[in-house]
Amino acid sequence: MSIQKVQNNKAWFMVLPVLVLVAISAIIPLMTVVNYSVQDTFGGNEFFWVGTEWFQEILASERFHNALLRTLLFSGLILAIEIPLGILIALAMPKRGWGVSVCLVLMALPLLIPWNVVGTIWQVFGRVDIGLLGHSLASLGIDYNYTQNNLDAWLTLILMDVWHWTSLVVLLCYSGLVSIPEVYYQAARIDGASRWAVFRFIQLPKIKRVLLIAVLLRFMDSFMIYTEPFVVTGGGPGNITTFLSIDLVQMAVGQFDLGPAAAMSLIYFLIILLVCWVFYTVMTSYDNDEQSNGGGAQ
């Protein structure tokens, strides 16, 4: 018996469009950045090989450390606020009736606004002279000025992000909550389970997966945040709100330090990849435990 292997190279043409798209959108730009990150130039299109010099410089620079810490702090804070707040709002939302669509539309509104518009809205909103928030606070005698006070700048940015993105967490959690059959709540009532027990043992396990997605999305988005703080504070006052992305743009576009900027981009990219991987692994490890205990049933 002989098996004839049919050579059919036509298949390659089928995947060609995808290859071209991915190459243009991801691989070529990424490789360009890699290329810049290991070379130096003094202009005139002359490049010199510098090896890992830029990477060492970035990793050792205090400017990078500070920007990284600021970004991590920002992501940590908005996760700590948006996730619990999102769950609470989702729990409080009506499950049926006319209220559902009203709530959903209201929730979706902030998500529909373009990022730079959100930035502009809050930039105006917080202004002490004409902004609703800034002016009201000022007339109440509270000393608020996000362009001069470090804490105020942070508060404004966090408030803006919470306003903009908590809805996403709410919508994801809500979708998880409404998929829980009514009988679960009934059974819990018969068992005499408390409100907390219902949340801890029925609702939380059932929304665990969407919650994981919410945390991942919010982490990635907030870690890469650029437009809104750029519009509102421009990284200031001083550089107190200069997050990694803002710092990167200043380096690449402002100072035209292509080498260090490329090295920083790659480090930035790897950090996001690493943190997401850690998040994902930690949050799904529980599931895997369950499955391995199950011995392959189901």
């Binding site: 679960y184 009934q186 009532r189 029925i202």
Partner: peptide, 17 residues
Amino acid sequence: VQKRNVAMVYQQFINYP
């Protein structure tokens, strides 16, 4: 219902996941 000492089993398999 909590005070009535009632137990109920449903068509769906309801357990704490």
